[in-house]
Amino acid sequence: MKFINYLESIAGVSIYGLGSLLIFSVLFLGILVWTFKADKKLIEEISRIPLDNNNPTHS
């Protein structure tokens, strides 16, 4: 019933640490690429959402 016993039975567990680090890195790089490739007008439009007047042409 001890908690660690459940996990002890997973084989080759060290791969998990590496694996999760990899998942993260790939995810993050993907997001970086997306952010820089995203359309400029779109970004500007989104950034104005909090403002009452969120149409850039009226600013």
């Binding site: 996990l7 567990v13 640490g17 694996g19 680090l21 993260f24």
Partner: peptide, 21 residues
């Protein structure tokens, strides 16, 4: 989906500590 990934990552960080005797 992204957050499922985050959750998995967080838990996996701890797994080795639980495991390696």
């Amino acid at each position: 989906f992204s957050f499922i990934a985050v959750a998995i990552g967080g838990i996996l960080e701890m797994v080795p500590t639980f495991l390696i005797k």
